[in-house]
Simulated scan of single mutants.
Amino acid sequence: MHFPGMPAPLARVVEMFSTLPGVGPKTAMRLGLNLLTRPAGDAAALATALQLLHEQVGFCECCGCFAEQGHCHFCDDPLRDAATLCVVEQPVDVLMMERGHGYRGCYHVLLGRLSPVDGIGPEQLRFAALDRRLAAGGIDEMILATSATVDGEATAHYLANRYRDAGITVSRISRGVPEGGELEYLDEHTLSRAVDQRVAWQRRAGV
């Protein structure tokens, strides 16, 4: 990326920002200029945070989630249900699951999803690590929480077939109408899935 008259250090910063997902040239320029107008201490703090990010944050040796000391705090938490394993695509999916405060089991992160077009097969994902966890025993249910994309669904089907004879219950997170959602704003696939996965109405006491 070249901007005539731009100082080389600023151009380098703008170029680095533009390599981030969802950041175009104009946004990268705004970010670079914003940093330039801030106190030097802010830029130094950002540089230190980025350096520590790679030095101190990695992936859990057990589940594949974010970790600072080899194991993440989810795997080290003795209060979590080790018999239930939720399989997700990325570490950020674990963070989203935790926001709901409804799941108290353990996780397994694949670090991606099957995508033959992109050359991503089972060997490129953490299936071997999942095999070892299941072989170790103690897991009763595997919850497939991959995305609702074509590749995410293909990954879920692959997982279900791979472990159908593993002696565990394999379930899939439900899809459908979000809480507070209006039907007129839903696409036909979401609405169709909501109908297919309908549940019996549980009448509340006193109603």
Results as ranks from 00 to 15, higher is better:
3 F>L: 09
5 G>F: 03
13 V>Y: 14
15 E>A: 10
16 M>V: 09
19 T>E: 10
19 T>H: 14
24 G>P: 01
25 P>W: 02
26 K>G: 00
29 M>W: 02
30 R>L: 00
34 N>S: 03
36 L>D: 00
44 A>L: 11
46 L>R: 08
50 L>A: 14
58 G>L: 02
60 C>Y: 02
61 E>G: 07
62 C>N: 14
73 H>E: 05
74 F>D: 00
75 C>E: 05
78 P>Q: 15
78 P>T: 04
79 L>K: 15
84 T>F: 15
91 P>R: 14
92 V>T: 14
97 M>L: 12
97 M>K: 10
101 H>W: 11
101 H>L: 11
107 Y>H: 14
109 V>C: 08
109 V>I: 03
115 S>F: 08
117 V>F: 07
118 D>S: 08
120 I>K: 14
122 P>Q: 04
122 P>D: 01
125 L>W: 09
126 R>V: 01
128 A>E: 04
135 A>P: 06
135 A>S: 10
136 A>M: 07
136 A>I: 03
136 A>F: 08
146 T>P: 12
147 S>I: 05
151 D>N: 13
152 G>V: 06
154 A>P: 05
155 T>W: 13
157 H>N: 11
169 T>W: 13
176 G>F: 12
180 G>I: 04
180 G>R: 12
181 G>Q: 11
181 G>P: 10
186 L>Q: 09
192 S>P: 13
195 V>N: 10
203 R>P: 14
203 R>A: 06
203 R>H: 07
